[in-house]
């Protein structure tokens, strides 16, 4: 999100309360130089974010309000989004989960129907209803590129593997819910998932997993995506079940075909 302390201060000081006015005047005085220097840019940023919010509000009214309410207060068809935060909206819409296509045990990942710009607009709009986790900055995300992969693996096995499988290939949860495979999620989405804890997934706030550890986990997941299966075909990385199916079908089929062939040959 765009930082705009000045505009925010202006917005919050609408009430004509005397003491505050005094402070505002004082603040304005202090900020005078800054304001003069940055007037042009600040104005541009403000109007840009304002157009973002207006754009977002339009998109929201069209695509989301039917379930989440016009003021994001929630309805019988969708939860309140007050305090959900920009990161949550960005995650839900960028992964195609929202707008929800059909009610089910869990919203599914699908191709997003909004452009990145529209998603940013929606996020900015929903963020105006109350504070929540912001979309992580590029600097926060990009740290994964140099993070310790092995440490990330340990953290992943402690925090995520019980639901997402040690190789990130996904797993079933109760009552039709499931932890999806992580092989399609981008570093930004992984970060947001940890920040916001969609659905049955717990929130991993900065107290439980500081930024560096989140980056290490992302580094590990990215390594899993790249890992080119030194042993050959991976069979979906689902473990012994698919291995068992393989040996009972292709493996047994091959040796029996050979047995029949050998039996037929000499005759």
């Amino acid at each position: 999100m765009i930082k705009r302390p000045f505009a925010a201060a202006m917005a919050r000081r609408r009430h004509p309360l005397a003491p505050l006015l005094v402070i505002v005047v004082a603040l304005l005085g202090i900020a005078a130089v800054y304001a003069v220097v940055n007037a042009a840019t600040a104005k541009a940023a403000t109007s840009a974010s304002e157009t973002m919010v207006t754009k977002g509000s339009k998109l929201f009214a069209e695509g989301c309000a039917s379930c989440h309410g016009l003021n994001a207060e929630g309805s019988s068809d969708g939860p309140s989004l007050v305090g959900a935060g920009a990161a949550s909206v960005h995650f839900q819409v960028a992964t195609g989960r929202m707008p929800l296509a059909a009610p089910g045990a869990q919203a599914m990942r699908k191709p997003p129907i909004y452009t990145e710009e529209e998603i940013q607009a929606l996020a900015a709009y929903v963020a105006t209803f109350g504070p929540g986790p912001a979309i992580p900055s590029a600097a926060q995300i990009d740290g994964w590129k140099t993070a310790d992969i092995a440490r990330g693996g340990e953290l992943f096995r402690v925090n995520c593997a019980q639901c997402h499988h040690a190789a990130g290939s996904g797993g079933a949860l109760t009552n039709g819910k499931y932890a999806p495979s992580l092989m399609k999620a981008s570093p930004l989405e992984i970060y947001e998932a940890m920040l916001t804890g969609p659905q049955s997934m717990p929130v991993f706030g900065d107290a439980s997993l500081p930024m560096e550890e989140k980056q290490q986990i992302i580094a590990y997941i990215e390594e899993m995506k790249r890992n080119n299966n030194p042993g050959g075909l991976s069979l979906g990385r689902l473990g012994p079940v698919t291995e068992g199916l393989f040996i009972w079908t292709i493996g047994l089929g091959a040796v029996i075909a050979a047995a029949v062939w050998i039996g037929a040959k000499v005759r």
Partner: peptide
């Protein structure tokens, strides 16, 4: 001992 993975299965 404090870790598990989903999809933990024995051989067939």
């Amino acid at each position: 001992p404090d870790q598990v993975t989903s999809g933990a299965q024995p051989d067939w």
